[in-house]
Amino acid sequence: MNMKLTRTLLICGTILAGGASAAFAADCEVQLRSADTHPDGYPTVEAVRWLGTQLKERSQGRICVEVFPASALGEEKDAIEQTQFGVIDMVRASFGPFNNLVPETQIVSLPYIFRSADHMHKVMDGPIGDQIAEGFAKHDLVVLGYYDGGARSFYNSQKPIKEVADLKGMKFRVMQSDVFVDMMSALGANATPMPYGEVYSSIQTGVIDGAENNQPSYDTSGHAEVAKYYTLDEHLIMPEVLAVSKLSWEKLSPEDQALLKEVGQESVPVMRDLWNKKVAESEAAVVKAGAEITRDIDKQPFIDAMAPVYEKYVATPEAKDLVAKIQATE
């Protein structure tokens, strides 16, 4: 999108938002607007609202954060660009859109790079997370913390998936990503990239056998109605980022920068706790509706099958070093 047009649309949209936004701004010396593509009530949205409450209290009402969920300030890619240009102050986004911008994010988006959600948290909360934050900084984004995007697993309408051989010849919808297409090929399955909104009908009509996603998405999309076999292989455990525009950051005093960073870090366990509760709720809902969840599979053969994917996407010494550091993290 043309940035001048984007800037104009956002400014107009903010003016048209009316009295509520104007009143909000009048209450605070510093008003920060935060964008999210997820709907109202989603764990990421509620975590940033928690951050805003804490920030207002600890600044004695000087600093406020207004959260705009459900892509109210634009779809994810546009929201990221607007945050880079300082039109939006903060953004919560998945790592996917950054893969071509921040090379390090592509590495942590590889299949089975994380052994578990806990492993991902330890990696992202440590020196590796700091290294990736430097990559974001090069593109005018200051990382406040890393949220949890959940674990993506396979589900289908045909049979339980318990081993790699069960995937052979099956057709799975994947995101429009070369990494995902290559992942499915390495597992012996056929990848069918398609928009998310077409998945339900495509499974229902047999165009595809299944798809892959985290449990809340599997639940709220209704996909469990047409694909009752869900396997917790957790092939992708995706971090998400909460970042503030460098331009907005530099307008803050050093004291306010420190406060925002502190509260941003504190919002991370809040978000992860909300996410865990959401996963438990969704799992209970799909099981009650008749879904069959396969657990405790041997993941090693799935991991071993990724050798050609890693050979293709982990080609530079820097990438190989980062993978080694991630795998060595305990």
Results as ranks from 00 to 15, higher is better:
H235D: 12
P239T: 15
I297V: 14
P216D: 06
A186H: 02
K278L: 09
G18Y: 15
Q31K: 15
W50V: 02
A165F: 13
A79G: 10
Q204M: 10
G126Q: 07
Y196C: 14
A23C: 14
V67C: 01
T105G: 03
A291K: 07
W275E: 04
K325M: 12
S201D: 09
R92T: 05
I326E: 03
I303N: 07
P39L: 09
Y112D: 08
C64G: 12
S177F: 04
S94W: 10
S177Y: 04
G150Q: 02
T14H: 11
V67F: 00
M175G: 10
E250K: 03
T329D: 13
E81G: 06
S157M: 15
D27M: 11
I208V: 07
K277M: 12
K251D: 06
E212N: 13
S221F: 10
I132K: 02
P308I: 08
F114K: 00
P317N: 13
E318K: 06
V123P: 01
A72S: 10
M175L: 15
R7Y: 00
K171G: 02
V65R: 00
M3D: 13
L187D: 01
D233W: 02
T14P: 03
V102G: 00
A17P: 07
K325A: 10
E76N: 10
D256H: 12
E240V: 08
A315R: 06
T53F: 11
Q215H: 05
Y313C: 08
A26K: 11
Q106M: 12
G18N: 06
A93G: 03
D125I: 10
G169I: 06
M1Y: 07
G126M: 10
Q300A: 05
Q106N: 09
V241S: 02
R92D: 02
Q176I: 14
K320A: 09
P160D: 13
P216G: 05
L101T: 01
L141E: 02
V270M: 03
G210T: 04
L274C: 11
S94K: 14
F24C: 05
S202F: 04
E311S: 15
P69Y: 05
L101C: 05
L5D: 10
P195C: 11
S202Q: 04
K246L: 07
R272A: 05
L101D: 01
M120N: 05
T8N: 14
S253C: 12
E212H: 12
L55F: 06
G18H: 15
E76L: 05
K171P: 03
K159A: 14
H119K: 13
N156S: 09
G18V: 09
V65S: 00
G145W: 01
E292T: 06
F24E: 15
G61V: 08
D130L: 14
G96Y: 13
M124V: 04
A289K: 09
C12Q: 12
H139M: 13
A186S: 12
M271H: 07
G135H: 00
D140Y: 00
P103K: 02
A93D: 03
P160S: 10
F98S: 01
M90V: 00
L232I: 14
V45W: 01
V67A: 01
T316C: 08
I63N: 03
E240P: 02
P69H: 04
Y310C: 09
G264S: 09
I293Y: 07
S153A: 07
